[in-house]
Design a protein around this nucleic acid. Structure first.
Lengths: 333, 333
DNA sequence: GACGTGACTGTAAGCGCTTGCAGTAACGTG
DNA sequence: CACGTTACTGCAAGCGCTTACAGTCACGTC
């Protein structure tokens, strides 16, 4: 394996100069730099990450912690993160925390603490106090894409506002009998994403004086959304509009409606949340939350902090936007 | 930061013994081991990855190289890999190679060569000779989930057989007018996955004496599948059965058929390939290739080799299976 | 012409572990 | 009882870089 001394010898300089020339830290004459770069190129030299980070304390890697890898939202955010980090020459180390509490602890107590990474990004993770503290203890920049967490720098979508926006949209179209597919009213940790979307829904309805809206719990899959929509649509006072807390559930709802011979949006309006690529195909009106952009934002924030920028204190706000693709309309008389 | 000396002092042994006790390499008395483990636990000691790998040459990390992060197949395989590796205490370093050739080179020439990883898994990547050589040059175990590549250890789905299986299934049901949605007959690198599936289709039909089957090119998305199916179904001699080279395209085909008032499978049979979770929902008959299992297999192979097993020379074969969920049936008279 | 400056460059001391080697103690064995 | 074994244990030499510090050299400046 070619090492830094080989390059130093080939370029006729000391290893110190090679290091400086290649990393861009410290002064190096143009001539020396050129010789070093040429020699390194010729020999195919790449500095050992281990040696480099042992000596410098920097790793050029960012850890990304996710609860799922194989769900649309997470892999999309991850793609955004990857794009942004690769551009800056950073590697990504992936930490997938499973539902198993013992494994989850291992990730926080062992894996993340190996000091393999310069920063951490977490995606949609509900961290308890101990986990938050554990992350803080790493002494590296951390950005959490998640609901506000006083212990961390967070990037947050205002999901209450998302819920309000979607619901208001339906109300403005003239709907009065609405249903929501999402968090069970009972599972109300209070600050989790699904709960907030539901609360937005309920708030807006309450303000409009509507009290009989239906909430159907579901599990954020197409299948779950379809089943929930089926229950709602088969009820005596079937809703004319459905707000699903995710696009996948909304698509399930569209399919359930079609199966029952209902036209969307003529017979029932349906709106989702996410900006899932499938939505375009179904003509689904949604509140887009720009998942890929969320990843890029998080990566940029982390990179900025690594460059020495002040940690963006407190919470950053992530954009969302109503995208009308036709699955909602005024109720037919 | 607590270091190995702190633990050594706390446990009343040398750092050598701490290292041996914690890594399980080399003999340590039970008493010493217990004291070390207790001290490490108490102090919250975790060995620095950089120091450890500089000294030992091992990193406890596996690199995974993917062309896309946000497509079902890749994120599902990745999830399988992650499961298997985390169980063994390995970290995953993710290398996403984009379409941009310059960035792609950077991944192979720089990122992967930082010696940050003990092994590499590539997913569905067409590697040119230079890239294969570059990987080999890393001197670590490599497993490629891909078509056979003489330069690497590969895990391969026999996609020719997959294409044959799906097509045979349709033929056995009694269909004579078939269409395939997948690789354009022109893009025939010959060994790529889509081409092989198409060739399987064509071979079986040729053997059955059917020469007028239609091949509609599409891009492996629901949308593309739908458009391709629309073209086929609107032709004068519309097929009674469609074999799509991916489940997403097959779902697109189902939706296109429904839109035209055709019933599946009564009016048209549709079969896909993948085992995409959405397929279950659409009642899609498919050739499941167990994506998650592919990831696990790859990870296990790599781990075995890291444990000192002989590299599984040549190619391993990945399983696939026809799953009949009802979207195919005999053609109605 | 002596000297301060600025711009590089090299020397060498680590970074925090792992592990070869040598040493020690406790046991059989002949 | 001398000695070979076995089973640990510790010492200390790295692993391959980065960087503080101490030059060195070429220029102005006074």
């Amino acid at each position: 394996m070619v090492g830094i001394d080989d390059v130093a010898r080939a370029a006729g300089v000391s290893t110190a100069t090679v290091s400086r020339a290649l990393s861009g830290r410290g002064p190096v004459s143009a001539a020396a730099r050129d010789r070093v770069v040429a020699a390194a190129e010729r020999l195919g030299y790449v500095a050992s990450a281990a040696a480099s980070s042992l000596a410098s304390g920097r790793t050029r890697a960012v850890g990304v912690v996710v609860p799922f890898l194989d769900r649309w939202f997470f892999s999309t955010v991850l793609a955004g993160i990857s794009d942004a980090l690769v551009r800056q020459g950073y590697d990504i180390t992936l930490y997938s925390v499973s539902a198993d509490p013992a494994e989850r602890r291992r990730v926080f107590d062992d894996h993340l603490r190996r000091r393999r990474i310069d920063a951490v990004i977490t995606i949609a993770l509900e961290l308890d106090a101990e986990e938050s503290a554990s992350l803080r203890g790493l002494g590296v920049p951390i950005v959490a894409i998640a609901g506000p967490n006083p212990l961390l720098t967070t990037l947050t979508v205002d999901d209450l506002a998302v819920g309000r926006l979607a619901t208001t949209h339906l109300l403005e179209l003239g709907h009065h009998r609405l249903a929501h597919i999402g968090a069970d009213a009972v599972i109300d940790a209070g600050s989790t994403v699904p709960s907030l979307r539901r609360r937005g829904f309920e708030e807006v309805l309450a303000e409009a004086g509507i009290t009989d809206a239906r909430v159907e719990p579901a599990d954020f899959t197409i299948e779950g959304g379809s089943a929930a929509a089926a229950r709602a649509l088969e009820a005596a006072d079937a809703p004319t509009a459905v707000f699903a807390a995710s696009d996948e559930m909304a698509i399930g709802a569209i399919l359930a409606a079609r199966e029952r011979g209902l036209r969307v949006p003529e017979d029932v309006s349906i709106i989702g949340v996410d900006g899932h690529e499938l939505g375009r195909w179904f003509g689904l009106t949604t509140v887009d939350q720009f998942a890929r952009g969320q990843g890029e934002r998080a990566a940029d924030a982390v990179l900025a902090e690594l460059e020495g920028a002040e940690p963006a204190r407190g919470r950053g706000t992530l954009p969302f936007e109503l995208v009308d693709r036709g699955s909602t309309a005024a109720p037919s008389r």
